[in-house]
């Protein structure tokens, strides 16, 4: 009986401890707003408040965004791709379409179906010419399924359709 009472009193204390923790977090934003505290990381919030803020480019160095072609040294509007089709053969999800027939070895068509792509990076690794890389295009959205088929040559040439950004 006495043990049960002591247990319950301890339990009530633990409830107060819990309230203290959540209360401290809950009141966190107020000192910052009142100018009493520096807006240290985390107050009032920890995550990136997306439409108002975006992620730092420094945090995206290794991020795997949708594929893009690496521009060649001579002409930044042209890719390094030599149309060897290694990537097409290596792709586990068959999301690449490369058609030969550009000037010299350059491809005529280079499509990446982003609805299928799993960003595994096999194509990037297999490419003998180093013509592929991951972009850091974090906020790419599309309204139609067709819009997700990325024309990488057009994108490289800077004529890619205006990306819908929120």
């Amino acid at each position: 009986m006495i043990k049960a009472i002591v247990d319950n009193l301890r339990g009530l204390w633990s409830l107060l401890v819990g309230l203290h923790i959540t209360g401290r977090f809950g009141l966190g934003p107020f000192p910052v707003w009142l100018g009493l505290k520096e807006p240290e990381s985390g107050y009032p919030q920890l995550t990136t408040h997306y439409p108002w803020k975006t992620v730092d480019d420094a945090d995206l160095v290794t991020f795997r965004g949708p594929l893009e072609l690496v521009p060649s040294e001579e002409d930044p509007r042209r890719s390094k791709c030599v149309s060897c089709l290694m990537c097409v053969r290596a792709c586990p999800s068959s999301c690449l379409t490369v058609v030969k027939g550009g000037q010299g070895k350059a491809p005529a068509v280079w499509l990446n179906d982003f609805t299928l792509c799993s960003l595994c990076g096999t194509c990037v690794e297999v490419c003998p010419a180093g013509a592929l890389r991951f972009s850091h295009d974090l906020y790419w959205v599309a309204e139609k399924r067709e819009d997700l088929v990325n024309d990488l040559l057009a994108r490289l040439a800077g004529a890619a359709p205006e990306k819908a950004r929120l």
Binding site: L46, T47, D59, T62, F63, L119, G121, F134
Partner: peptide
């Protein structure tokens, strides 16, 4: 989890379905 994802993103490039290992080593 966010903080760990930030860390793992540096090595693996992604935040969820990570695929960083290769036969005989790592991808990056």
């Amino acid at each position: 989890r966010e903080k760990i994802n930030d860390l793992l993103q540096i090595v693996t490039g992604s935040r969820l379905t990570m695929n960083s290992m290769r036969f005989g080593g790592m991808g990056a």
